[in-house]
Computed example of a mutant assay.
Amino acid sequence: MATNVTKEAAAGRSPEPVVRLNGVGKLYGNVRALRGIDLAVRPGQVTCVLGDNGAGKSTLIKIVSGLHQHDEGEFLVDGNPVRLSNPRDALNLGIATVYQDLATVPLMPVWRNFFLGSELTRGRWPVRRLDIERMKRITDEELSAMGIHLDDLDQPIGTLSGGQRQSVAIARAVYFGARVLILDEPTAALGVKQSGVVLKYIAAARERGLGVIFITHNPHHAYMVGDHFSVLRLGALELNAARADVTLEELTNHMAGGAELAALKHELAQVRGVDVEELPETVQTPSA
Rank of each mutant, 00 (worst) to 15 (best):
A2T: 12
T3W: 13
N4A: 13
V5E: 01
V5F: 03
T6L: 13
A9K: 13
R13H: 14
R20Q: 13
V24N: 01
Y28S: 08
R35V: 10
R35F: 12
G36E: 10
I37W: 07
A40Q: 07
V41Q: 01
R42E: 06
G44F: 03
G44R: 04
Q45V: 03
Q45G: 08
V49K: 08
A55V: 05
K57D: 04
V64H: 04
V64T: 03
V64C: 00
H68A: 09
H70C: 02
E74H: 00
F75R: 00
G79A: 04
R83P: 04
L91I: 13
N92A: 10
N92E: 07
G94K: 09
I95S: 02
A96E: 09
A103N: 09
A103I: 03
T104I: 11
P106V: 04
P106L: 02
L107A: 15
L107M: 15
M108N: 13
W111P: 04
L116C: 11
G117Y: 05
G117D: 11
E119M: 12
R124H: 10
R124S: 11
W125D: 12
D131E: 04
E133N: 14
R137I: 04
T139S: 08
E141G: 14
E142W: 03
L143D: 09
A145C: 11
H149L: 09
L150H: 06
G158A: 01
G158S: 02
S161C: 06
R165K: 01
R165L: 02
A169F: 00
I170G: 07
R172G: 02
Y175D: 03
D184N: 15
P186D: 14
T187S: 11
V192R: 15
Q194L: 14
V197C: 07
V197F: 04
V198N: 05
L199N: 10
A204M: 14
R206T: 08
L210S: 13
H220G: 00
Y223F: 12
M224H: 12
G226F: 12
D227Q: 11
D227Y: 12
V231E: 13
L234I: 00
A236D: 06
A236F: 02
A236V: 03
L237E: 10
E238N: 09
L239G: 05
L239W: 04
A241V: 01
A242E: 15
V246M: 05
T247H: 08
L248H: 07
E250Q: 15
E250G: 09
N253A: 15
M255H: 04
M255P: 10
G257E: 07
G258H: 00
A259T: 15
Q270R: 15
G273L: 06
V276A: 13
E277L: 11
E278G: 05
E278H: 07
L279R: 14
P280L: 03
P286I: 03
S287W: 00
